[in-house]
Amino acid sequence: MKIAIIQFGGSNCDLDVLHVLQDVVGVDAELVWYKEENLNQYDGAIIPGGFSYGDYLRAGAIAARTPIMDAVKKMASEGKPVMGICNGFQILAESGLLDGALTTNKYPKFRCESTYLKVENTDTPFTSRFKKGEIVSIPIAHMEGNFYADENTLARLNENEQVVFRYADINGNVTDDVNPNGSQENIAGIVNANAKRNVIGLMPHPERASEAILRSNDGIKMFQSMVDHISKK
C-alpha cells in the first residue's frame, strides 16, 4: 500500500502529512511533485494544505487546473480514496470533485486556532474509526474556509449525508458562536456524492491533531480509517 501526497509549488503541509503517515500511522507514503501525470501506482492520495500558487487568483484555482489533477480525478473515478485538507479542500472544490466553494472568512482574517468538530457521517473511507456524533478536537488555519453552496446543493448535501464534519462546541452544539469562518450550517468537511464517498475535503488539519504532544490525537483516526479502507480492498 502506498499513498501519494501531492505537492504543488506553495504546498506547505506536505511534510507534516508525510511525517504523520510514515512515523505515526506507519504507512508507506511518498511526495509527488505536481508535474507528475501518472498516479497509477498509488492506492490513495492526499492533497495537503498550504498556499498552492500563493493563493494567487483564488485559493486552489490554479492548482485545480494542473495536469496532475487529471490523474487525481482518475483515481477518484476508480474509487480510490482522495483526501483534501485545507488548501487541498479548496483545490478539490475548484476542480469540481467536491461541491460548493470556500470563500473568505466572515471575519476576513487568517484564523489559526483549535476547533471542535461533530462527526456527522462515519460511513466513509475516512471516518470509519469515529463514532457517529463524536466530538473531536482538530485545529483550523485558513483565511478562505467559509463554505458556501447554493440552496439546492446544500439540500442535496444534507439529504445525501455528504456533510462529514461540522464546527461544534465541546458538547456537540452546532451554533453560530463556534462557527469560526461563517460556513453555511457550520460545515467543516464534506464527501463526494458518489456512493463510495471516496473523496473528502475538510478545512481543519487532522495531521496537526495526530499526536498527544500536540494536544490532540483525534485526527489520526482519519488517516487510520483511510488505511483500513485500502487494506480491506
Binding site: 487568517f110 484564523r111 489559526c112 486556532e113 488555519a141 499526536e211 504532544i213
Partner: peptide
C-alpha cells in the same frame, strides 16, 4: 494577533503563542 499567524504548521509547536515561551519539538 497570533491567531492570524499559522503557528502550528510543521507540527512542532508544543507550546503555542500566548505563554512565556514558545516550545517546539
Amino acid at each position: 494577533i497570533y491567531r492570524q499567524y499559522d503557528h502550528e504548521v510543521q507540527v512542532r509547536t508544543v507550546v503555542k503563542p500566548g505563554e512565556d515561551a514558545g516550545v517546539l519539538r
